[in-house]
Amino acid sequence: MKIDHCSNSNPDSVRMRSRTGLVKLELSSVRMRMPRPYHHGSLHGALLEAAERILRRDGIGALTLRSVAREAGVSHASPAHHFRDFAELLSALAAVGFTRLRDRMAAEAATVRRGGGARRRGLGRGYVAFARENPNLFLLMFRSDQLDRMHAGLVAAREAAFALLAGENPDTTRLLAATARWSLVHGLSLLAIDGRLQSIASRTALSDEQILDAVLSADAGRRPAPAPAPTW
């Protein structure tokens, strides 16, 4: 068999002569089908995306550096070039979560009419909605036993999310009030993830969304009384 480069057509083509005739091979089409290597700097984000896919699909117990590398389609040694250790990868992923949490709260608050009370309820609904939509990521964000608390990106993202609840430069009174609101919405989020709000709703004439709105509005006392207390 003889191989000739095509000179009067596509330079990315070759002709192969054989006893059965002339075959033209387009190299460009072959190149398009070959897997592309990661561009410089993109593997960091690809590893985080792979980690989140595993977290969402299989839970935190399935996350390891090896499983993330396998999910991303790279060698087992590749994550070490971007993350010092497993805790750093988890911390970077948690930072992504806090950034999304802040965005979700801000988006929900932007849909309500002006007013401190309405805005706070909007922030609370956004907080709980994020937890419901991303339960495994939400739980990871508060797993201090597996995260690097001093990770710069995590600290910045976490503080930005809390600042949305507390406001800018809060004094002690506002800081304590924000902590109380945070405790409320965080507890509601855990109840929602665990299915407890649905359990309570099944014993009342309210939906779990109505219960959530009632609690966030500090108006639960004027709602219909529930049936016998749920069995925990």
Rank of each mutant, 00 (worst) to 15 (best):
K2P: 03
K2A: 08
D4M: 08
D4S: 09
H5C: 07
H5F: 12
S7I: 09
N8R: 12
N10H: 08
N10W: 01
D12F: 07
S13G: 07
R15W: 07
L22Q: 14
S29E: 13
S29N: 10
R36F: 13
P37G: 10
P37N: 08
Y38H: 09
G45E: 09
L47Q: 08
A50I: 01
R53F: 07
R57T: 15
R57V: 14
D58C: 04
L63Q: 00
L63T: 00
T64D: 11
R66I: 05
A69I: 10
R70T: 14
V74R: 04
V74N: 05
V74Y: 07
H76Q: 12
H76Y: 11
H82C: 09
F86Q: 14
F86R: 14
A87D: 14
L90N: 05
L90I: 08
S91G: 11
A94P: 14
A95Q: 00
F98H: 15
T99N: 04
L101I: 07
D103Y: 00
M105H: 00
A106F: 01
A107S: 13
V112E: 02
G116W: 11
A118C: 10
R120W: 01
R121E: 15
G124N: 03
G124T: 02
Y127W: 15
R132A: 13
R132E: 14
E133F: 04
N136W: 07
L137C: 07
F138Q: 01
L139Y: 04
R143I: 02
D145C: 12
D145S: 15
Q146G: 10
L147A: 02
H151P: 10
H151C: 09
A152P: 15
A156Q: 13
R158L: 01
A163W: 01
L164R: 04
L165V: 06
N169Y: 05
P170C: 09
P170E: 10
T172I: 08
R174W: 01
R174D: 10
A177H: 06
A178N: 11
H186F: 10
L188K: 06
L190A: 06
L190Y: 12
L190H: 14
L191W: 09
A192N: 01
R196Q: 14
Q198Y: 08
S199H: 12
R203D: 03
R203Q: 13
T204C: 06
L206I: 05
L206R: 11
A214Y: 12
A218S: 13
R222I: 12
A225W: 06
P226Q: 03
P226I: 00
P228R: 06
P230L: 11
